[in-house]
Write a protein that binds this DNA or RNA. Structure first.
Lengths: 263, 263
DNA sequence: GAGTGGTCTAGACCACCCC
DNA sequence: GGGTGGTCTAGACCACTCC
């Protein structure tokens, strides 16, 4: 394990892209602390020689890690382990539950209502549903340390997960969808807005009417481009904040991530 | 202009990377509506032949546009123009002014206060300043259509832009910094929180005390990793919302962007 | 002047989609 | 079976950093 940049680790006899194997391997080594933050990793040439790969392949593996924020490149100097981003911030598009779980925080959900129904027009449009196509509607109140934190109404096309309502919905929805239905959410568009709590929201979240809430409206998409989930969540303003990292790399592309952090 | 995928457009005699020239060219054509959303663009091979480039170079150009969200690739089928992201959402890490300008909205700033001063401890830590290193402090109230929208206090290391306070600060700060000082912000970490307006904020933003505001705390970094700007902004909750796109691509990387949208 | 990442070429084989 | 993107190789030249 001490020196596990083992040439054998890259297997050319399995149908897994070499560049992917290499980036996974390097990623593990970085996470395991093989190099300190700011430390130089082997040069591209060294990696080529070590693993018997062409430079193109090695560069593709490094590209992946650079884009993901694990490494930075400095022309003529080398490739270095990047400063750690905010904990649990890389690899996003996850749900609230996963976000909190990564920070060691347990979220419990109380299901307020669940039903199969005809969607309101707005929801049907967001989910690109035709007339007659039903949705699963799910209202939940979510708690951290027995304190209500967030109120969320979500809608999913009935066809895609018809038996969802029979599942245990007190945990994370995204995990469930991935594991039981093989549905992978790969893209989400979210709107964030500061609003005042109305009477119902105030009562459920145990704040005063008019207290600031973070309203999040979100539509998520599957890997084939189909919209899959629409939700509207209200977070207590005094209990959550959101973190965004933006960075520009290469020739003008911008990337960033959104994570949730409890206060 | 009708058929301006002109081979001449890629110039091999100038010191600009070919893949970059090609991605810029294609980007322009996409923006100009040369292909409809969902339409197939020429194959990689065709682009190679048309511009006299190797496939590696063509692919690098396409990679850029795929990562930026302009194109999607479908194995064995082709490369297609992606569904438009929210207007002006690609290419982020810009300032509020640029964000609005891209949407055709003019932002005017009133400078409330500007001075060179010793930073409070928190700011000094964020900007990684040693004792004795001064900052420029700048308080602005920003307007859209003569309505106050946002109140912002920002801090910059004095050393990096000593004559900034003599400039016209009623426009966009990021533009100014880029153009006059060659300072390029490439990374930012931002915290978003819903808070209630205090009396001062309420008065300046012309809302009632207690009204919901979006509080944004941000630290920006230059391309060499140095922290460069810290700000704390309060946006009227009833006048702004924030858009985030997250997406996962390739082997698990996640990217996203944050943009501002007026209500 | 050696080291290193940035760029580029020419050519190859594969898996998968669609006809 | 042809078209197309995904992967990979081997080799090259450059600009820049650091000694």
């Amino acid at each position: 394990m001490l020196n596990s940049l083992d040439p054998q680790a890259i297997r050319k006899d399995i149908p897994v892209p070499l560049h992917y194997q290499l980036s996974e391997l390097l990623n593990q080594q970085i996470e395991a602390g093989r190099w300190r933050v700011g430390e130089k990793i082997p040069t591209e040439e060294e990696l080529c020689a070590l693993f018997g790969l062409s430079r193109t392949t090695v560069r593709k593996a490094l590209d992946t890690l650079v884009n993901a924020g694990y490494l930075t490149r400095q022309k003529s100097r080398g490739t270095f382990v990047a400063e750690k981003l905010v904990e649990g911030l890389v690899n996003r598009a996850a749900g609230f539950y996963d976000d909190m779980a990564r920070q060691g925080i347990r979220v419990v959900s109380r299901v307020l209502e669940k039903r199969v129904t005809q969607p309101p027009d707005k929801i049907a449009r967001e989910l690109q549903l035709g007339p007659g196509q039903a949705v699963i509607a799910l209202d939940r109140l979510r708690f951290i340390r027995d304190e209500p934190i967030m109120l969320v109404s979500c809608y999913l096309p009935y066809e895609l997960c018809p038996s969802l309502l029979e599942e245990d919905l007190t945990g994370g929805l995204y995990q469930l969808l991935r594991q039981k239905y093989g549905l992978n959410i790969v893209r989400a568009r979210r709107f964030l807005e500061a609003v005042a709590a109305n009477d119902y929201e105030a009562q459920m979240l145990r704040v005063k009417p008019g207290a600031p809430l973070m309203l999040i409206e979100s539509t998520s998409y599957l890997d084939d481009g189909r919209p899959f989930e629409y939700f509207k969540a209200r977070h207590r303003g005094d209990r959550t904040r959101f973190i965004i990292e933006n960075y520009v790399y290469g020739s003008g592309e911008a990337t960033g991530v959104l994570a949730t952090s409890p206060l």
